[in-house]
Amino acid sequence: MTGDSTHFGLIDAFRLGLRYIRGRGQAPVNIASISLASAFYAYMVLMGIGTQTLRTYRLWLLSVAVVVAAVSMATVMLISVYERYREIGVLKCLGALDRHVFLLLIVEALIQGLIGGGIGILLGFASTLISNTSTPLSGVNYLGLSSTLPLSTLISMASSLYPAYRAMRLNPIEALRYEV
């Protein structure tokens, strides 16, 4: 009619995404799995990667932790999308575009990745303190440690791509028909 379309920016996605994270049961599960993988990574950054044999072993464990976190996150996000089937249909009915729905889900993943990464850093730090009391705080590799956050958000967002795609492609008519 005007060639205009509807709006839903990053701030809006954060606002709504935060409500969903706070109001629904799945977020703690996602945050737990992301924080475990992140804790493992942070621990390795702090302790150093170790000697040859230890190195292969630890890298292998880290990859397993990352894969487990990613698969768990993808599953839980997919469940979350199906549980919200009708609500996503309502959003589209009220003017949300496909890409708005996609953005909402990815931002939810981003927030959970950041929280999970933050908890992971604390956990990793705590476990080095327990296993190695002699580490002086000044010797901590803060830069390496902070690389946990990009890693955790990346895992979180990458594993939510498919669930977000499913949410985006959902047909609002079918979703609204979907009786509870």
């Binding site: 009619m1 060639g3 379309s5 509807t6 009915c93 003017g95 575009l97």
Partner: peptide, 10 residues
Amino acid sequence: SYELAWLRCR
């Protein structure tokens, strides 16, 4: 689809 979303919204 953009204009239709606008219609549903406004």
